[in-house]
């Protein structure tokens, strides 16, 4: 069980301040969803935590131990970006073999619905939805204890969405998962905690509070 605690984060995009001295916390078992209007800083917050956007100020810890500068090298967080990120000239089989070295680690991916059907076609030959589905499956199976998913449900076919929702719930038993998406009905169904970004501040809500 791990917990990432962001005590304080401030982020800007150019001259525009997106987040000012905000805090959030994610632990194993959480499915945290972040919402807000377009351009409020949801994706930038994800990138800042992943280490691909420089934050103005960040104070954070893992299991109460202070963490340094975020970097992909930490292998603490994996991230699904908004744009497709897997090489389109490779097949899902080749990508899985590159990222997951042993047969034992590859097996759960091939046992996911539809993956075997797509596995021998290049990503460029698959529909955008099918390629996106493969990307999400790959990200959720990586070894990182925390996963950031930026708009995972856009472009997905309804059957793919259902399979991904199931996988997110299953993986959240071992990982902390943060999701940004505009498809409220999809993410509300599976989220355990919610955050709303408005005027540079994060507003927290437990799902149980919403139900009340």
């Amino acid at each position: 069980m791990h917990q990432v605690n962001v005590q304080s984060i401030s982020i800007s995009q150019g001259k525009r301040r997106l987040l000012e001295n905000s805090s959030l916390s994610v632990q194993t078992g959480d499915i945290l969803t972040i919402s807000g209007v377009n351009g409020c800083g949801k994706s930038t917050l994800m990138k800042a935590l992943f280490g691909t956007h420089k934050s103005d100020q960040l104070k954070w810890s893992l299991d109460s131990k202070p963490l340094g500068k975020p970097s992909p090298k930490n292998k603490l967080i994996a991230m699904l970006p908004q744009d497709s990120f897997l090489p389109r000239d490779l097949t899902p089989s080749e990508i899985i073999a590159m990222l997951f070295k042993t047969h034992e680690n590859q097996k759960p991916l091939f046992s996911m619905p539809y993956v075997a059907d797509y596995s021998l076609k290049k990503l460029s030959e698959l529909s955008h939805g099918a390629a996106r589905y493969i990307e999400i499956v790959v990200i959720l199976h990586l070894w990182h204890p925390f996963i950031l998913l930026d708009e995972p449900f856009s472009l997905l076919a309804p059957l793919h969405k259902e399979a991904i929702k199931k996988l997110i719930v299953e993986k959240s038993k071992m990982k902390g998962i943060v999701i940004v998406d505009h498809y409220a009905e999809d993410i509300n169904e599976i989220s355990t905690n919610r955050i709303w970004i408005e005027n540079g501040k994060l507003f927290h809500r437990k799902v149980a509070e919403d139900a009340e």
């Binding site: 992909p72 090298k73 991230m79 970006p81 990120f85 897997l86 990222l99 990182h144």
Partner: peptide, 18 residues
């Protein structure tokens, strides 16, 4: 042409500099 594919490498722990 393929800048977005850097995330493929980042997720494996590679940085751009590396």
């Amino acid at each position: 042409h393929k800048g977005h594919e850097y995330y493929f490498y980042y997720n494996y722990g590679y940085t751009k500099n590396e």
